[in-house]
Amino acid sequence: MAECLAIRSALSSALDLGIQFLSLKTDCQVLAKAISSKRTVVEVHGVISDIFFCISQLKGFTCSFILRAANVEVDTLAKAALASYLVIF
């Protein structure tokens, strides 16, 4: 869930800034496969639907899986985003 919320926020911000081409790298293999294949994941259905909508607004988008060991800073950021989201709601 943390990763989904961070991705949705990043995509939304990118669109607000007028960014049209984006490359996403994630350490969540299930999420990378779901986004790449445009399949929903039941546990995060609403958030991933928002992600697909944002992606549809871009001119170019790629998504790939990377190992968590190569993604420590972003993993920490995603967890912080989830904590912020839970505090707000």
Rank of each mutant, 00 (worst) to 15 (best):
V47R: 09
S64E: 15
S36E: 10
I48R: 06
I48Q: 04
T26R: 03
V47C: 15
V87H: 04
D75H: 15
Q20Y: 05
A70S: 13
T40W: 00
A69S: 15
L15A: 06
L82A: 08
A81C: 14
A32R: 04
V44D: 03
V42E: 10
A32T: 06
F61Q: 01
I19A: 09
R39Q: 14
V42S: 11
K59Q: 11
C28H: 08
A80W: 13
I19V: 15
A69K: 15
S84T: 08
S9F: 08
L24W: 02
Q20S: 14
I35E: 00
Q57T: 05
V74W: 08
K59P: 03
Y85D: 13
K59D: 09
A10Q: 09
S56K: 09
I66Q: 12
G18T: 01
K79P: 05
I88T: 15
A69H: 12
V47Q: 14
T62S: 13
S49W: 07
V41G: 05
C4W: 03
C28W: 03
L86Y: 05
S12A: 08
A6G: 10
C4K: 01
D50G: 10
A2S: 06
R8A: 13
L67H: 12
G18C: 07
F61G: 02
K38I: 11
F53I: 03
L58G: 05
L82Q: 07
H45W: 10
A6V: 00
R68K: 09
G46M: 11
S12H: 09
A83R: 15
A14L: 04
S9I: 05
F52E: 01
G46N: 15
L5T: 00
E3G: 01
G18W: 10
I66P: 06
V30L: 09
V74N: 06
L15Q: 05
V47H: 06
S36D: 09
R8G: 00
I19L: 14
V74R: 06
V47M: 14
E3P: 02
F21V: 13
S64Q: 11
N71I: 00
I55A: 08
V74M: 12
F61K: 00
G18R: 02
A32Y: 01
C63T: 02
I51A: 04
F65C: 05
C63V: 14
T62W: 05
K59A: 09
A80D: 14
F52K: 05
I51N: 02
L86C: 15
F53N: 03
S49V: 09
V72D: 06
V44C: 14
V47W: 02
L11C: 02
Q57R: 11
T62A: 04
S13F: 03
C28D: 04
V41A: 04
